[in-house]
Design a protein around this nucleic acid. Structure first.
Lengths: 186, 186
DNA sequence: TTTATTTCTTACCAAATGTCAAGAGAAGTT
DNA sequence: AACTTCTCTTGACATTTGGTAAGAAATAAA
C-alpha cells in the first residue's frame, strides 16, 4: 500500500492516521496478463489503484475493439458511472501484463467517504483531475492530427511504447495500427 | 428557479425544504448574446444552470477557435477543474444567444455541500454523469466518421441546428464548416 | 529449438476530410 | 433601404487516414 499512500499524500495534505485508515480499506489483488478486471453487463463495484502493470479499457464497436484508455502504475481505474450509480458497465478492462492492484470495494469506498472526509476530498480531486485529463484528450482529438497526438503521447508516456502492443496505442489515438506504423516511420 | 429545482428532483429523491435551501443559493443572471461567462487566465468561481439560451465553451489552438461543447437549457456549465481546485481556467465560455442563468458561487457551493448533503449527492451525480457523457463523445470521436457523429447529434439535439451557427457545431464534431456543409448536403 | 500465434511493417489504392478561394445568403447596423 | 459583416455553400485540389493483403519480426507455446 506504499505507493497508494504516496499517491494520496501527493495530492492532499493528510495525516498518517487517516492515510492508514484509508489504505486499510484496500486489498491487494494480482492479475495475470490477459485476465479481465471488468467485463460488460456487470455492475462495477470496485475501484483499483494500479501498483504495477498495464490495463486497457476498451469497448467493441462494429466488431472492432476500440481502446479508450491504457492505465499504468500510479493510476486509478474503474468504470466510473457504473461504480457511482450501480448501473451496468459497458467497458472491458483487461490486464495487458501481469498486474498488481490495490482494490477498494464500492461499499467500503462510500463508508470511507462518510467516516474519513479526507478520502472524500481525495476522491473529489481524483474525479476533477480525471475529468480535466479527459477534456484535454478530447480537445486534442478535435483539432490535432494523428501525428501531433502521437508526439504528445511519446512525450508524456514514453514507457507505454515499450510495454504495450502498438495496436492498442493506435486505437487510443483514434487511428489504425497501419497508420501508427507509418507515422512512426516517417 | 423553477427549472433548476425540476432538474435536481429529476435526478435524486429530495424534499421541498432541501430543494428550496439549495435553490436559494443561486442567483439569476442575464447574459446578452456575445457576452462572456468566463475568460481564460481567471479562476472560475461560479457554476451556472442554464435556464434559457446557448453558451459555447471553446479554446484557441494554432490561432483557431475550437468549440468543445455547446450548453443549452437544462444543463450546467462551468470550468470544472478551475472551479474545484481554484486553478486558472483556460476556456472561453460565451453566450451564443441571450441567456438566463442561475449561478451559484464557489463558496456557496462548498458551504451547501457541508450543510445540505443532498446537494453533495446531486453534485456527485452531475459529475459522474458529465464524465460519462464526455467518455461517450470521446469514444465516438475515436471510431466513428464525421457523418455518424453528425447523425447522432441531429438525433440527440436537433434544436441546436436551428439556434447555433453551424460553424461551431462543425468544430464540436471535429470537422471544418465546409465538411459539415457537404455532409448535410448528402 | 521448433512451431504456432500474434504483432508490426510495407505497398498500393480508396475514402474521408482539409485548404483555399469565390460567391451566395442571412443577419445586424446605420 | 443600403451597407456592412457574418455565415453558409460550392468547386477544385491536396493531404490525411483507412482498407486490404502480404510478408517480416517478435513473442508465446510445444
Amino acid at each position: 500500500m506504499e505507493q497508494l499512500e504516496q499517491c494520496i499524500s501527493n495530492q492532499i495534505r493528510i495525516q498518517k492516521e487517516d492515510l492508514h485508515k484509508i489504505s486499510s480499506n484496500f486489498q491487494k489483488v494480482e492479475l495475470k496478463k490477459g485476465d479481465f478486471f471488468l467485463e460488460p453487463d456487470k455492475v462495477c463495484r470496485k475501484m483499483a489503484f494500479i501498483n504495477s502493470g498495464y490495463l486497457r479499457m476498451y469497448d467493441i464497436a462494429d466488431g472492432k475493439e476500440i481502446t479508450f484508455w491504457i492505465g499504468s502504475a500510479g493510476k486509478f481505474i474503474t468504470s466510473l458511472s457504473s461504480f457511482v450509480f450501480e448501473t451496468p458497465n459497458h467497458w472491458y478492462i483487461q490486464a495487458l501484463s501481469d498486474c498488481t492492484l490495490c482494490i477498494i470495494k464500492r461499499r467500503d469506498h462510500f463508508n470511507l467517504c462518510e467516516t474519513t472526509p479526507k478520502w472524500l476530498e481525495f476522491d473529489n480531486h481524483l474525479l476533477a483531475h480525471s475529468f480535466a485529463l479527459l477534456e484535454k484528450s478530447m480537445f486534442s482529438q478535435l483539432h490535432t492530427t494523428a501525428q501531433q497526438r502521437l508526439d504528445n503521447l511519446l512525450a508524456e508516456e514514453p514507457a507505454l511504447f515499450n510495454h504495450v502492443p502498438l495496436k492498442y496505442i493506435a486505437s487510443m489515438l483514434g487511428i489504425t495500427a497501419e497508420s501508427l506504423s507509418r507515422l512512426r516511420k516517417g
